[in-house]
Design a binder for these strands. Structure first.
Lengths: 164, 164
DNA sequence: CAACTCTTGTTCAAATTTTGACTAAGTGCT
DNA sequence: AGCACTTAGTCAAAATTTGAACAAGAGTTG
């Protein structure tokens, strides 16, 4: 009995990962072709654009992107070279620095977004009915919550989870 | 009205991609740590293990992995160095070659699979109820079908789709 | 304050991975 | 035989990623 459940779940997993992988490469290709941005570039721009002051500490950015420090440094430096972000020393903490969205970065995002979102709709969202959208949201918001927690929890297992 | 739909769909999309990205990096880290295999390695092993003769043409493998030819060559060469696969000339077609699963490759897969699958269960599947598993399967099998089709269609738009 | 320790982010060189142009060889027509 | 297409591999260049080592500041303790 658990057997057949496992079979279904395994099949679900394979289906999900295979299609997702295909989807992501497709979307990244589209994004690169229409805007010259990588997924990571785009993601950084989105994150910065949504936050007050359009700026984030490097560490914060690294956490959200799940990037190692030096990888993040590389990513931001690359975007800085292309004028998409700037780097500023952090006022509160002399060690830190912040990545700040530039006007050019915002423009790049505004230009890229319509194409990218269209691509997302075409390849994925337009095919889903409302119930499926709801299921997707439910499944992955739970998953995201768990994984975000799990990252800290290695160091914070004691710090009572708390239900946000 | 379409507005609110779009909002939900956009949110669903962001939730999905963010959690998926986290999940994939987490699973790949687990996989690397327990077996020394990358996702791509593992995927190749799985694909080969499931096919009669445990062998696939390079092109076929490239299609399934969505890898460029030279990337696939690199991937297979690397696995060959590590003894996970062998390369054999294709009998039917003198140009081609086949990647063949070796005993060591099969062993590596058998050793890696339990850990990996456990990791998949722990991080994802155990949290889903049956309805969610069903939804996941439905959504992503449709998506996979569409994307597999779309890849060909670039070159085959004229060649009447035909319902296989 | 001085001494320590922890954090933050960068640097640098090495390793890994990916790309793309080019080639060799074979296939399948005509 | 001649020709166009396919299949993979090669090779060098570029891009990316890692990890160890480091500089500089924060924060704590006595």
């Amino acid at each position: 009995m658990t057997e057949s459940l496992d079979r279904d779940r395994l099949a679900a997993w394979r289906t999900y990962i295979e299609a997702s992988q295909r989807l992501f490469t497709r979307l990244e290709d589209d994004l690169r072709a229409t805007s010259g941005l990588s997924f990571a570039d785009y993601h950084v721009l989105v994150l910065l654009s949504e936050v007050p002051g359009q700026r984030l500490r490097m560490g914060e950015l690294a956490d959200r992107l799940v990037f190692s420090p030096s990888r993040l440094t590389y990513q931001v430096s690359s975007m800085q070279r292309r004028g998409l972000v700037a780097r500023q020393p952090c006022p509160q903490d002399g060690r830190g620095s912040e990545a700040v969205l530039t006007a050019a970065g915002l423009l790049a995002l505004r230009e890229a977004a319509p194409h990218h979102l269209k691509s997302v709709r075409t390849h994925l969202m337009d095919d889903l009915d409302d119930a499926e959208v709801a299921a997707l949201t439910r499944i992955f918001s739970r998953l995201g919550r768990r994984l975000r927690g799990a990252d800290d929890s290695d160091a914070t297992l004691a710090t009572a989870p708390g239900d946000n």
